[in-house]
Amino acid sequence: MATFKEFRNNVKPNWCPGCGDFSVQAAIQRAAANVGLEPESLAVISGIGCSGRISGYINAYGLHGIHGRALPIAQGVKLANRELTVIASGGDGDGFAIGMGHTVHAIRRNLDITYIVMDNQIYGLTKGQTSPRSAEGFKTKSTPEGSIESTLSPLEIAMSAGATFVAQSFSTDLKQLTLLIEEGLKHKGFSLINVFSPCVTFNKVNTYDWFKENIVNLEQFPDYDPTNRIAAMNKIMETNGMLTGLIYQNKERKSYEDLVVGFQEKGLANQDLTLSPEHFDKLVAEFK
């Protein structure tokens, strides 16, 4: 069994010192080892942005695609080989702005992949523009008078789209984050894990200290039942989306792969592609 060190490679991330994404990288490596994966059985598919580089910083198969499209690529990988463990990842711009359409539909589709969003409420790689996660009034290079659009709540959207696993964490809480990623990896279906991952360079409002002051850990509510959809929705609204922990999980709904007629346990990529002459003749006969 691989240790978390085997999921490390020798590439130095191009993230700023102090970036929240370092902890997310470490948490993925630990969680992958903890659930018993081998580097070659994991595929990390990422989008574009600072956080999108993460697929290159984990010793596993990795694909760094185009902006906003990590999820459809990741779903393609999983459909092609369901024996793989597939993680999709990227930032809040990637997943909730340009890629929002895919996020909602990936949630609905419920393929067994884990989507980890590094949410820093700003566009970092393009040097500081507003994100759909920015607060109203947030001043950036593209909103010098402050953002006048409402802040998007990915947790509420995920819940309303029929998500079967919704969690949120904070990058400094490596223990919680690692555990949630493990739970996400084990969940049979689509798991969304939104991670507050502060941008130390361009976001001077949503800082580590700011998060520490504003976050509510679900551990504070011992009676909280993450299988209760209405309670989950209420809690998200009560805390204005600032809660961390496992917010909702539906273990009843089958994953997409389990619902596709004729889909086998063995990955398609490992099956024989050839068509028998008898099968071909049958197909041709329909055109006579």
Binding site: R69, I73, V77, A269
Partner: peptide, 9 residues
């Protein structure tokens, strides 16, 4: 992009 992911895999 899904087709690209599946071909990659």
């Amino acid at each position: 992009t899904m087709a690209i992911g599946a071909n990659y895999a």
